[in-house]
């Protein structure tokens, strides 16, 4: 691992992002979603809605941008000649994660500020948000590594968005409280982050960590596969 190379990638991708209109649409549409809500609904938004915004940001911006950036390097074959060891692939991933982190933070702050950020300005909520960010980042890296083209990532992004990004929406489908779907989706990262915010601390923290470990495992397998393919 080399700080020099991480910095090189970070700088390059930071310059590249404003020129990439397709990727910029992700945070923009996310902010639009918050804007439309704040214009149509008066008063305090429910907590579940704040988490829905956060989930949309993490799935679209964090996972979406991360997987697109990696997949674009795959598709255009720009990594060949740059990567000579697993360490240099790791440098690329870390550099890109930093860029993704910055753009996620900006887009999350802006969209939450539009709908009212106050309820989330406490230790528990911030821990939950950070853990969610890690989960979505790892998912994005993993998918980016195995998809060969940009077009494929938009396909992969859909299920990630609907299952993990918009989980609170499933509660509005009027399903029975104890149905298998509700019970399953209640263990998903966003629902656990809400749980972490609302009630107890340790149990949801454990489940969130388990999700992150799962995502990390998935990413590691994809990483190994990419390295052995070459």
């Amino acid at each position: 691992m080399s700080v020099q190379r991480i910095h090189a990638i970070f700088e390059k991708d930071l310059k590249d992002l404003p020129r990439n209109i397709a990727l910029l649409m992700l945070p923009v549409s996310n902010i639009l979603l918050a804007l439309i809500y704040s214009l149509t609904v008066d008063g305090e938004p429910p907590i579940a809605f704040l988490y829905l915004i956060a989930g949309a940001t993490f799935s679209m911006v964090t996972s979406g941008i991360m997987m697109s950036m990696i997949a674009e390097e795959n598709e255009k074959n720009t990594m060949r000649g740059l990567i000579q060891s697993p360490a240099s692939l790791l440098d690329i991933i870390i550099g890109k994660s930093l860029v993704t982190g910055i753009i996620t933070a900006i887009s999350l702050m802006v969209s939450l500020m539009i709908v009212g950020i106050e309820p989330l300005m406490n230790f528990r909520a911030i821990i939950g948000l950070i853990l969610m960010f890690l989960f979505f980042l790892l998912v994005g890296i993993g998918i980016g590594l195995f998809s060969k083209s940009l077009a494929a990532t938009s396909g992969y992004l859909m299920p990630v968005m609907f299952l993990f990004g918009f989980t609170p929406m499933i509660a509005t489908f009027q399903l029975a409280e104890d149905s298998i779907i509700i019970r399953t989706t209640n263990t998903f990262p966003i629902m656990q982050a809400i749980e972490l915010y609302d009630n107890n601390f340790w149990m949801p923290l454990g489940i969130l960590t388990a999700w992150i470990i799962g995502a990390a495992l998935f990413t590691f397998i994809c990483f190994r596969k990419v390295m052995t393919d070459d």
Partner: peptide, 23 residues
């Protein structure tokens, strides 16, 4: 000459990146 370059970036930015990457 088969691998890609960063087409959206300027010539200068590409070279600057390679200089840094290859130290």
């Amino acid at each position: 000459l088969q691998e890609g370059l960063y087409m959206r970036l300027s010539v200068e930015d590409n070279i600057a990146f390679f200089l840094k990457w290859f130290n």
